[in-house]
């Protein structure tokens, strides 16, 4: 896939219209993981809008999103930046060998109190 095809695929599976963005930055103003990210929610939207996909796909920012939907609910334009981040991450991990987390990683992270919900969620987000 070239950049253009990747861009179309991301827009298709996310259902997001990146052109709605008016560049106000409210998504990045509200993002709880902002400081951990190399590219921030408003930059995600802009990079998808302009087709700058490869850099995005290579970024660790994809795995810092908390799926808290704050950017979705507070965006005045209804852009839903979270859905773009999710789509780009999926495009990455759907490729063979691109899982961000493996079953072998789990035992070292686990502790006695950790709820099952945390493990299944992380698996959903980081592996395929």
């Amino acid at each position: 896939m070239n950049n253009r095809q990747k861009q179309e695929e991301i827009l298709r599976i996310s259902g997001v219209n990146a052109r709605k963005c008016m560049k106000c930055g409210k998504c990045s103003a509200t993002c709880p993981a902002y400081d951990e990210m190399e590219y921030h929610p408003h930059e995600f939207v802009y990079m998808v809008e302009t087709g700058d996909i490869d850099r995005l796909m290579a970024s660790q920012s994809l795995y810092k999103c908390l799926s808290c939907f704050a950017c979705v609910d507070r965006c005045p334009r209804g852009v839903q930046p979270f859905k773009l981040i999710e789509a780009v991450r999926l495009m990455n991990i759907r490729k063979q060998g691109n899982n961000h987390m493996t079953a072998n990683d789990i035992p070292s992270i686990l502790d006695d109190d950790m709820p099952q919900q945390a493990i299944v969620s992380a698996f959903r987000k980081y592996t395929k």
Partner: peptide, 20 residues
């Protein structure tokens, strides 16, 4: 940029915003 959240904590209003 835009303000994302205002949190009243004690006497102050903690403003979280983006500087684009």
């Amino acid at each position: 940029g835009m303000v994302g959240k205002v949190s009243p904590e004690g006497d102050t209003l903690k403003v979280q915003a983006s500087d684009l």
